[in-house]
Simulated scan of single mutants.
Amino acid sequence: MVRFKNRWFLVEFIPIGQSRPAEGHLDGKQIWSALRQSVLSNFGDTGWGSVALSLTVKYYSPTTSICIIRVARDQHKIAWGALTLLSSIEGLKYIPNVIHVSGTIKHAQLAAVAHNREVIARYRAQSRTPSAYHDSYEEYLATSTLEIESLQD
């Protein structure tokens, strides 16, 4: 029996013209449809036919604007190219920053948790809060870590 091999992308969507992401504006379905449009416009029906069955958005956090995307290993370069060429989602401009690419969901989860901690540290530095200060980000880090770790392949 042959197992289905995947590539997992950890992507940060950096908003252009906004200091922080518009919380609650994006969701996984909007990201998936924007990726679909990017694949169709840049690689045509053949490109979409090759990635359509395996392309899924497994996780999206509106607070830190990171996303975990799964695609088949053989077609991951098409999906990566479509991500790189993506410029707007639902009319708002974003820069997709591919942070990590891995072959297992476990490594994508570890990279996502580490990246969440870095982003929260940046938010705290911008607001000039001490690192020992307990705020709503502590609760977010705990819940997002549980959500990310509960993802299944």
Rank of each mutant, 00 (worst) to 15 (best):
M1T: 01
K5P: 08
K5H: 11
W8D: 02
L10E: 04
V11T: 13
V11G: 02
E12L: 05
P15S: 08
P15N: 04
Q18S: 07
R20C: 05
P21I: 07
E23D: 04
L26R: 01
G28P: 03
K29L: 13
I31A: 11
I31L: 14
Q37Y: 07
Q37V: 05
Q37T: 09
N42A: 11
T46Y: 06
T46F: 03
G47N: 02
W48I: 02
W48P: 00
W48R: 00
G49R: 14
S50H: 07
S50M: 07
A52C: 06
A52K: 12
L53A: 08
L55T: 06
L55H: 00
L55I: 01
V57T: 09
V57Q: 07
V57D: 02
V57H: 03
Y59K: 07
Y59H: 13
Y59Q: 11
Y60V: 01
P62G: 03
P62D: 10
T64D: 11
S65E: 06
I66C: 05
C67E: 08
R70H: 04
V71T: 15
A72F: 07
R73Q: 12
D74K: 14
D74M: 14
Q75P: 06
H76E: 09
K77S: 09
W80A: 15
G81I: 05
A82Y: 09
L83D: 11
T84I: 04
S87P: 06
S88M: 04
S88L: 00
I89T: 01
I89D: 00
E90K: 11
G91R: 08
G91M: 10
G91I: 12
K93V: 03
Y94I: 10
I95L: 12
P96M: 03
P96H: 03
P96G: 04
N97Q: 01
V98A: 03
V98N: 03
I99P: 05
I99S: 04
H100P: 01
G103T: 13
I105A: 04
I105R: 05
K106N: 15
H107M: 13
Q109K: 08
L110G: 07
L110T: 05
L110E: 15
A112W: 05
A114K: 06
I120K: 12
A121E: 14
R122A: 13
R122K: 13
R124H: 08
R124W: 12
A125L: 13
P130F: 05
P130V: 06
S131V: 14
Y133D: 08
D135K: 09
S136P: 08
S136I: 14
E138H: 11
E138C: 11
E138N: 13
E139C: 03
Y140I: 10
L141E: 04
L141D: 01
A142S: 15
A142F: 15
A142K: 15
T143I: 13
S144P: 00
T145Q: 14
I148L: 12
I148T: 02
E149D: 14
L151N: 10
L151H: 10
L151D: 09
D153I: 12
